[in-house]
Amino acid sequence: MVHSAALQYRHNAVLNRLATAVAGRPRRGNTAVPDIRINQAVIGDSSGLRPDLVITDEAAKAVTIVDVTIPFENRRIALDNARQLKRIKYADVARGLAARGYSVTVDALVVGSLGAWDRQNDAVLRHLGIASRYCQLMRRLMVSDTIKWSRDIYVEHITGHRQYVSP
């Protein structure tokens, strides 16, 4: 794929914003800092899948798996289908973790390639413990990043001239 690097940069721009927000969220009291893994296999899982974001809280025996996806948004159903496919993709990983005694949440952060924000993302961000005021800013930044990269991909596709320097 000619544009695969730009597609990955677009995906990573959204993922990096999410990971930064999760790592910087405030903790309550003396709670242990959860293990945050980005683009790594789940410990103890042999499927070879590498979710975008895995947050493991050993004290609470809870694991949250969030995968970022940026589908082409021809209709609302495209965003819903993208979320459902991510849930299905990691269902076996979740079952394996649940069998080991973990409470598991699997979800997706879905931003349309033309900047559509899936309303269900707000619930995902709340579950991750990100403050609602910061969620509003994150939404704008993620949508802006997505549109910027999509524009670069489109212009390169039409003109044949790369619009970005590899980060």
Rank of each mutant, 00 (worst) to 15 (best):
V93R: 04
R83D: 00
G44K: 12
N74H: 12
D52T: 04
A60G: 06
I88T: 11
V66G: 03
L85I: 04
R75A: 15
R50G: 01
F72I: 13
V66L: 05
V54F: 04
R95Y: 03
T69N: 08
V63P: 02
D52C: 12
V63W: 03
I70D: 00
A78C: 12
T69R: 08
A94I: 03
E73D: 15
A82H: 06
I65C: 05
K61S: 14
I70N: 02
R87K: 15
T64R: 10
Q84H: 11
I88V: 13
P51M: 09
T64L: 10
T64Y: 01
I88C: 00
A94Q: 05
A59I: 08
D45K: 08
V93I: 14
I88G: 01
I70K: 00
I88Q: 10
N74K: 14
A94G: 04
D67V: 04
A91P: 00
A91V: 02
D92I: 06
T64M: 13
D45L: 12
D52I: 00
L85R: 14
I65M: 08
A82V: 01
R95K: 15
R83A: 13
T56C: 06
E73S: 10
R95H: 10
V93D: 05
P71M: 06
E58C: 02
L53Y: 06
G44Q: 11
R87E: 07
D80A: 14
Q84W: 04
A62S: 15
E58H: 12
L53N: 06
R83K: 12
V54E: 04
S47P: 07
I70F: 00
N74G: 13
R75E: 15
G96L: 08
L53I: 10
S47Y: 11
D52K: 04
R50I: 09
R87I: 03
R87L: 15
F72D: 14
R95L: 13
A82R: 02
K61E: 04
I65V: 13
N74A: 14
S47N: 10
T69Q: 07
T69C: 15
V54L: 08
T56F: 01
V93L: 07
V93Q: 03
I70W: 01
T69P: 00
R75V: 04
V93M: 07
D67K: 05
T64N: 08
N81C: 04
I55M: 13
V63N: 07
D92R: 15
K86T: 02
T69D: 09
Q84Y: 08
V93Y: 04
K61I: 00
A59T: 11
P71R: 06
A94M: 02
P51S: 11
I88S: 07
R76M: 08
E73Y: 11
I70A: 01
G96E: 12
R87M: 08
S46C: 09
T56K: 12
K61F: 04
G44C: 08
Q84L: 10
I77T: 13
V66P: 01
